[in-house]
């Protein structure tokens, strides 16, 4: 069982806020999902290598050359706030 404080800590790591009003329900749902995972402990995984990717092979490497895949202006058009070629964020240093 995981408590509300842990769920709040996890939410902070994920940069998500959970209101006081929602924390009880969120914790209950969290525990409901973790209970589903309990079944995993029944599997004997002694000496079983983890499977990260179904192809199980090393990823292909391409030639290390510079390529322009997309246009910068098109990407910048999606920025919520920008100036010239820069993304704007709230001031970090005073």
């Amino acid at each position: 069982m995981t408590d509300a404080a842990t769920v709040r800590d996890v939410a902070a790591l994920a940069r998500l806020a959970i209101s006081d009003q929602d924390i009880e329900n969120a914790t209950a749902e969290f525990n409901q999902t973790l209970a589903l995972f309990d079944a995993l402990s029944s599997a004997d995984t002694t000496d079983v290598a983890p499977m990260i990717n179904p192809l199980d092979s090393a990823q292909r490497l391409r030639v290390d050359s510079v390529e322009t895949l997309v246009d910068r202006a098109g990407l910048m058009q999606n920025a919520p706030a920008s100036e010239e070629d820069y993304f704007l964020v709230p001031r970090v240093l005073d």
Binding site: F37, L40, S41, A43, T45, V48, A49, P50, M51, I52, P54
Partner: peptide, 14 residues
Amino acid sequence: QYFMKAQQVRRLIA
């Protein structure tokens, strides 16, 4: 407990 274990069970299933 969870992520690594699940990756191992994934191999058993595969």
